[in-house]
Simulated assay, not measured.
Amino acid sequence: MRIAFTKMHGLGNDFVVLDAREAPLPPLNPGFAAALADRHTGIGCDQLILLEPSSLGDFRMRIFNADGSEVEACGNATRAVGLLHGAPARIETLGGMIAAAPSDGGISVEMGKPRFDWDVIPLAYPMDTHSLPVAWEELVNPIAVNVGNPHVIFFVTDPYAIDMARLGPIVENDTLFPQRINVNVAAVTARDAITLRVWERGVGLTRACGTGACATAIGAMKRGLVDRRVTITLPGGPLVIEWREDGEIVMTGAAAQSFRGSFDPADFGIDA
């Protein structure tokens, strides 16, 4: 038995998509996602995306990071899946229901409403999430936001001057964050523009992170640094984030299909 896959990316944040909406796949062992994501011995990706039937929406999307951990949300993957689906869709995720639809700017995704309560982020103990009284060297007083998954955002003068390869994993794995954390360093360059780099939980430095862009935009808006529609420029390209008056976050950006293929599950220790 061979399993078909589609390789996709959103601004360079890349995914292997497995579609089990019509026919179920064999059970995936715990190391399968990590094996498939390996760029030397697997197909290679930042996340493995599994599409399944859903009784709540048009389908369910499960997201596995390159280290094999399952996570709640991924904005870039949602745009890629929206492109693959080819029509407006309501998508069930661990982080809640989200909606994706084709638009003039690529794919627009309604990401839900941001949450700021300390126990929803979650943090290990109560703290003001709008300005955490903590620091890791030059990274100080971040804002914490949950946009389906947890983020901290540090506003700095130059994101590219920060040693994210060293500081990213330190912040991600700090005991303040019992479920680990996604780490964003951002510079506001205009009332409608932000430059961003992201250390993604379970992945590392990434060319783009949709939920990171959403969280960073919301953090900047909460601090009054930008207006309610902003372009976030990541290493992989731009995303437009709007925080509507009804509280919903809307992300718009490009996604693309790279190639299609198939693999033998036995190559990754799975009995088909």
Rank of each mutant, 00 (worst) to 15 (best):
P169N: 13
E22N: 01
R244A: 08
V171I: 15
M97L: 12
M251A: 04
L239M: 11
G224V: 10
N182T: 15
H130R: 11
C45Y: 10
D38N: 09
R39G: 06
G219W: 05
V81K: 02
R228T: 11
F259H: 13
E245M: 07
V171G: 04
L25S: 01
L123F: 15
P150I: 15
A220V: 06
N149W: 03
L36N: 03
H151G: 06
F259L: 14
Y160V: 11
I43W: 02
N76E: 12
G219D: 11
N29Y: 07
L83E: 14
D117T: 11
T233Q: 08
P114M: 15
I241R: 05
V71E: 00
A73M: 02
A87F: 06
A272L: 14
A187C: 00
C45E: 07
L132K: 00
L132T: 03
P88R: 03
L18W: 14
G261T: 09
S262Y: 04
L36E: 05
G253V: 01
A144W: 11
A215D: 09
V226L: 04
N141C: 03
V134F: 06
N65D: 09
K113P: 00
A99V: 12
A254M: 10
A144F: 07
W118Y: 14
V203H: 11
I232M: 04
S69I: 00
G10M: 06
P126L: 09
P126S: 15
E70L: 02
P88N: 02
I121K: 05
A254I: 09
C45W: 08
G247T: 03
E138K: 12
D227R: 07
N173K: 14
D128W: 07
E200P: 00
W136H: 07
P265Y: 14
L11V: 05
R207M: 13
P126Q: 13
I194F: 07
D104F: 09
R79H: 10
R2H: 03
M97A: 02
I43H: 01
L205R: 11
G12N: 01
A37H: 06
L51G: 00
N65H: 08
L50W: 10
E138H: 13
G237I: 12
G236T: 12
L25K: 04
G112M: 06
W136R: 10
R228D: 15
E92F: 06
R228F: 08
L205V: 15
W118D: 06
V71H: 01
F15Q: 02
Y125L: 11
P235G: 07
V250Q: 09
I249Q: 01
L25M: 02
L139I: 14
M221K: 08
I121M: 07
A4H: 00
T175L: 14
M127I: 12
D117M: 12
A254H: 04
L205D: 11
V140Y: 09
T206F: 04
S103F: 10
T231I: 15
D46A: 03
T157R: 12
N76C: 01
D267S: 03
V145P: 00
G212N: 13
G12D: 13
A80T: 09
